[in-house]
Amino acid sequence: MKKILVLSALAAMLASGNALADTSDKKIAFSNNYAGNSWRQAMLNSYAIVTKKAVADGVVAAADIFTTADKEVPTQAAQVQNLILQGYDAIVINAASPDALNGAIKQACDAGIVVVSFDGIVTEPCAYRVVVDFKDMGRQEVEQMAKFHPEGGNLLEIRGLAGTSIDDAIHAGILEGVAAHPKFKIVGSVTGDWDQTTAQKAVATILPSLPEIVGVVDQGGDGYGAAQAFAAAGKPRPTIIMGNRQDELQWWKEQKDKDGYQTWSASIAPGVSSLAFWVAQQVLDGRTDVPHDLLVPYLAFTHDTFEAELPNIPKGGVASHEYTQEDAIAAIKANIK
């Protein structure tokens, strides 16, 4: 019985053609610039689960993780340069800055190293980018808001970490959404840094000066904090867009059980790190048709789907999804035009 299984697995491998065989002696490094929040922890965790299995299966020789001690660009640039010296064949990177690492990334490419960026992407043309459509996510927030509040109204926006590309893209999407739905008006904007405590403080500070708010558009990791701030101020509870965090979905469930509260939740799945790993593996495998920009969908939950996901999220964590090699091949295929 076992023999048949092994044989059929072998047959499947052979049938799938060039996959697997060629990367067993390749080493892939993961350069990460920050590990200090639930999203990044889930990201590292997903990556470790997937790569540990890949190494055990002999798909790649090594998949080491390197995290810099601070969030600074120069530290990560130095780290990339050191990875070049270490002789890695590919670098998967969550970058501190889309542009400011280009010097180091170019050096890596020149040394023949495959660079795959995700989440915090790099703009250097020689690198690959696994991009989540953050702008569409921002636009979709307002679209969803229009479903809950067809009559329109005042919105409060919570921004992410200032000066980052992600904050910029989501913000641009929200502005686009508001332009498409002129019944909505953004009457206030605060910086929440994707962090519940920061968001709560920021919202609490601005609330007294605001007119009635029907909805809060945000960037994830800040929805629960905003809800707390509204409750503490004794203001009516608006429709707060959530960001797939456990505390946010838990709060949503409590509200839903109480009075059927409706909202929408979306964020980038931290497991996208594992997708980037498989993309790197595919390129190392000799595939030359991989587009340098790969658009992958964000992870969204609606009124009907979020409760099924809630038990799978660890306390203090965020909803994730571990990608497989097949997912990567499918994503590459979907992006080849």
Binding site: E72, T75, A100
Partner: peptide, 17 residues
């Protein structure tokens, strides 16, 4: 010198210095 090496800038680039 820093920008000469990184080739492009970021508002938070020097905070650790």
């Amino acid at each position: 010198a820093l920008i000469g090496i990184t080739t492009s800038a970021d508002a938070n680039i020097g905070n650790g210095y």
